[in-house]
Amino acid sequence: MSSIETRTKGEVTIRDLTKSFKIDGETLTVLRKVSLDIRGGESLAIVGASGSGKTTLLRVLAGLEEPDGGDVLIDGAPVHGLGRERAVIFQEPRLLLWLRVLGNVAFGLEVQGVDRAEAEERARRYIRLVGLTEFETAWPRQLSGGMAQRVGIARALTVQPEILLLDEPLGALDAMTKMTMQEELTRIWDEEKVTMVLVTHDLEEAIYLADRVLVLPKEKGGSVRLLDIDLPRPRDRNGARFVTFRKQLMAEFGLH
């Protein structure tokens, strides 16, 4: 069920990416010469302790932060700043409270100059994909956390990006909603054939969703590690190999 080979677009190449922040006059280097190839259509999870720079890496990929050095190439071409081939799903749904579900999902397309009727037509498809057809006319304040996040996901998918960047998208949800949403994300990723880069602090989530897990080092100067999760989908959280992967990943962080 893996779709890595079916997709040639949405390939990301990261070369010697460096990023530091100045905090109170002191320079804090968050990313130190990070290099990585993300295959088109792959699902890659980035895990790391807080402060390891996983969110910074994602924000640089999104174009929300400028790197100090190094390059990001998408399908071979260097990119600077934001681009339409990428869409971001944030931890918070970030919905516009004055638009109904349909308006929120169509928002991305409308901003890109697609006229309202067509944007809404295309939005409806993704509202159906995330299972919210009945709630098209609901206001954001009427939605539960999980449903609001689905709207955010549909909004990002509607612009049909090659690369979906997810910054701890399920971090604020309760455990059960979270598991349901992980299953949904797997299904959506499989249907949309999109490259997915997921930042998470949830190791199980990384194993459940990703083809490969990138482990950012805890201590400065440590090396980046990559873990192949060659499990068939849908994945069984309690399967023997799943558990083995979890143990292995936990060991990376000195956890048992």
Partner: peptide
């Protein structure tokens, strides 16, 4: 106005004017 909403609009490629019209203005009403 929540800076996170403005950032969200930017990720879809919204110009400053569009962001103002579609996010800042309605949020201020």
């Amino acid at each position: 106005v929540d800076a996170k909403l403005i950032e969200m609009a930017r990720t879809f490629g919204a110009s400053r004017l569009t962001t103002f019209r579609r996010v800042v203005l309605p949020a201020s009403v």
